[in-house]
Write a protein that binds this DNA or RNA. Structure first.
Lengths: 336, 336
DNA sequence: TTGTAGGCGTTATCAG
DNA sequence: CTGATAACGCCTACAA
């Protein structure tokens, strides 16, 4: 009870005393510096192990002016989509001796701001922000302080993105080939607008001489529950769309369920395409037609990019493989 | 390029200089101490804001000997199950002025060890470990250093768990009521053994006078891909089980898919019950019969518990509502 | 109400 | 090869 506060950890000084050397020698020994007698080095190392020494990050960060930590502000932990990204980030970070810290933002701008502020206080080596919500200016004002790498935000100065347009284009081509002409588009929480998916959607329609129908554009809040409403909206349209380009797989799952509840057969009565290719996507009934993003690689690239940025080396935006269309069972030819 | 290293942040001294006071006064002013002239306090506060002051956590942690950070070692970010927990933790932590740091362990023991070690270096106020993999002794040796709260590990000295037996019992009762007698059990990555779900499984069988069949016990690795093998194993059993008690929803999803591929109709030919009640569980085809865990509340409780532990107050294990059975479409009466 | 002094644990830069 | 010393930015006595 309450004993946690009293138990002081073993510090470098304790080791120094035990080894009969000066603290600075301990530091050098622990760093594996060559300019320290092998004998002392081993003695110190052994002592450190025995005594259960753990470096005090705060002290180290204070004097080194860097923490060897990379902060990642994840918008939605519920979406396994980001897990792959995080894994890529972590694996690559480990190679560079960096640790990864994850903060959840729930896709809320203020939370994202807070998370980044927190990272700054921690003196992180860099910040990775996938699908940032905060305006560009916010990050620009910080860029002088800490390197920031965005994931999937092509407007940002430093970002790792894959050709998000091409994946969406592939979806559209696929739907159009199946004969669909009335295709609904469900945007993400921030709405359509400059979003690449939406751009691809419009371009594809245009290229195929199909009139753009504002009524076919809906917005997914991010909450699965709201898919019921989306389904209602789709059902109300007359004529009704025969296919849906959904914001992501989660949205597609919710939508398919809601449409079924309303008596539709998927994909016979309506094709639904997702985005992300969650691990479960191929295992659903019907399996989801979707776009696979190379999230793991993008995670790796973010760290490499960050690293170059820090070094001030010519930090070229890394090339990321393009997303790939996965045609599965949730899309079918347009009903006659 | 490389400018990140040069731009020193504004410190308390800079403010002091600008405000024409001593640094220690700035500290006090920023803390809102009453023993500082309102005039100076405001002046300092204004200056801090203008100059974009951000406290240096490293320095603060060093002197205060605590970081106001709580570390959470999450086993599997892919599983949305933990997202709820994390949300509960974060929301409650915010109330206590604590920040939450999440580290991914991928359910790997060494990674978990590393994560906790990292937390210690950061001088976190406490550590929360859901479904820990490391042995109890590991944590016991740390308990003197930092308060540790486990989630769902009833063997640990301090843990927040809900009555995990009752949820599993409910599943078993449900399956038995449907007439199932040959019920397979899929354990988690760590195998069956002392695990509460497994205990409930065996007890239920016993109570109903059903012989325990070791051949009906399988282990889920945690990787969705391996569900195909599990399905094969199930198919090979003769007589074949008519129901499966799956480790979690993810496992159930993979299993249902694999069984279908092998020609079974779910739930007609085999009932599959999951665990966790993922948000998508109700929206699958068929909707999953599963057990809903109060993860959000458990997250809240973990923080409260941790808080009490720190204060050395009488830290009673909090009472958590029991998990609830959700009967849906993936289970059906035993086929004749 | 404010300034002074000392220290938190570590590292880097000097001498020796 | 090793020891001494001065930071790093902040906080808390204590003194004024």
């Amino acid at each position: 009870m309450g004993r946690h506060l009293g138990s002081r950890r073993v510090t470098i000084k304790d080791i120094a005393k035990a080894a009969n050397v000066h603290p600075s020698t301990v530091t050098r020994a622990l760093q594996g510096s060559t300019s320290v007698k092998p004998d002392t080095r081993e003695r110190v190392a052994a002592l450190a192990r025995e005594m259960g020494y753990r470096p005090n990050m705060a002290a180290r960060t204070l004097v080194m002016r860097r923490s060897h930590i990379v902060g990642v502000a994840i918008p939605d932990m519920t979406n396994p989509f980001f897990a792959d990204l995080a894994h890529g980030i972590e694996d690559e970070a480990a190679k560079h001796g960096l640790r990864v810290l994850i903060r959840n933002t729930s896709g809320i701008e203020s939370a994202e701001r807070d998370a980044v502020g927190f990272f700054l206080e921690l003196k992180v080596d860099g910040v990775i922000v996938p699908m940032a919500r905060c305006p560009n200016e916010f990050y620009e004002s910080l860029a002088a302080t800490v390197p920031i790498v965005h994931v999937n935000r092509s407007e940002a100065p430093h970002h790792v993105s894959c050709d998000s347009v091409s994946g969406s284009r592939a979806i559209m081509e696929h739907l159009l080939e199946l004969g669909h002409r009335r295709i609904a588009f469900i945007s993400g929480p921030t709405g359509p607008g400059p979003e690449p998916k939406f751009r691809a959607y419009r371009e594809a329609l245009e290229q195929h001489g199909i009139a753009y129908e504002p009524d076919f554009i809906l917005t997914f809040s991010g909450a699965l529950d709201d898919c019921a409403e989306l389904a209602d909206s789709l059902m109300r349209r007359a004529p009704r769309p025969t296919a849906v380009f959904a914001w992501n797989d989660l949205c597609a799952i919710g939508l398919i369920h809601a449409l079924r509840e309303r008596g539709l057969d998927i994909p016979r009565d309506m094709s639904v395409a997702g985005h992300d290719d969650l691990e479960i996507a191929a295992r659903l009934e019907p399996p989801l037609t979707t776009v696979h993003w190379p999230m793991y690689q993008m995670g790796q690239h973010s760290i490499r990019y960050l690293y170059k940025l820090r070094e001030g080396r010519n930090a070229q935006r890394p090339a990321v493989p393009a997303p790939e269309l996965q045609v599965r069972g949730s899309t079918a030819p347009v009903p006659k």
